[in-house]
Design a binder for these strands. Structure first.
Lengths: 167, 167
DNA sequence: GGATATAGGTTCCATATCGCAACCTAACAG
DNA sequence: CTGTTAGGTTGCGATATGGAACCTATATCC
């Protein structure tokens, strides 16, 4: 993301994207899920410029998505680890990756796909579901105002219902 | 995303982000879910610069996420609509919004939350699940190579298992 | 202990992208 | 046929990126 957008906190999606929507950021988190822990590891895996990687890692640490510790066995090395908050991004990342493999594979030949480790069975696509497991579409959900609702936010919402078919 | 990254198609997440990771793009898709259909609508809702909105919409149309038609009743108006491919981003967007409300609300006072429209019951957080509905963590899944796997991609993957705890 | 290598950054510069405001064109309205 | 509206495009200054060089603190080697 280029510069600070003028969307303060109107939408929780906007708030998330303010942090994660910057180029490279989610890829760094993905690498952390892959088990990458060190600066040079991220750098080599992504080919990212070092100064940008530096600022991204600092922001992720600052936001509480990664921790930053010096390796006890080698004082030069810094160890970056996912926090619970970072691990909570797992569904988001899988959803994005699944969307990409479903819709962006040019010839339909996927490089890899997700399976359950124990059984080897494929993982179904991530979906929005009700408590009983029914899959929900965008027409099936609505908003309710919470205690943090403000007039500014309400003005930004076209309506409190997701109406994909509305005029 | 600033400039073209040197990640060709190594990861399906990277491919998705090449399209959606640009600043504003996912917010435009969100607005489309809200029912916004016209240029001025997006512009007013997001406060985005007109030239940027113009390029974003063109890219989304080009990628097959939105359609672009002239309004039959008013030849000036252009109608942008989500395609199936665009609607398939629903879980991603909800997952990101839920993550934001769970981890980024400063004082815990949410402006709004998702409920099921019919019953009014709250929507559980989006999760990665096995076929039988069990929730899966990053330790529970693995990759298998598909027909599109190449040596270049394999080199980029630290391993074919998501090993969050690995050294 | 001194030289060298390594990990993790920081600094500097050329370029690409964004925000903003002004301008432009095609279709409608009166 | 003059004015307005929708949907852009064009220039311009501010900002973030990519790339390479440089810097510092810790290990490692002899």
């Amino acid at each position: 993301m280029p510069k600070r957008s003028p969307l303060p906190a109107s939408c929780m999606l906007a708030r998330s994207l303010e942090l994660l929507g910057e180029w490279w950021t989610l890829l760094i988190v993905r690498d952390a899920f892959f088990g990458i822990r060190h600066f040079e590891g991220f750098q080599a895996s992504l080919g990212i410029a070092r100064n940008v990687l530096s600022t991204r890692l600092a922001k992720l640490v600052d936001a509480g998505i990664l921790t930053r510790d010096t390796d006890a066995e080698d004082g030069r090395r810094i160890v970056y680890r996912l926090t619970d908050q970072g691990r909570a991004l797992f569904p988001t990342i899988v959803a994005l990756a699944q969307w990409g493999s479903r819709w962006l594979s040019r010839d339909g030949r996927l490089p890899y796909s997700f399976i359950e480790r124990e059984s080897g069975t494929p993982i179904p696509e991530v979906a929005v579901r009700a408590i009983d497991g029914r899959e929900l579409g965008c027409r099936d959900i609505a908003f309710i105002e919470g205690p943090g609702m403000t007039e500014a936010i309400r003005r930004n919402l076209p309506g409190l219902i997701l109406h994909e078919e509305a005029a």
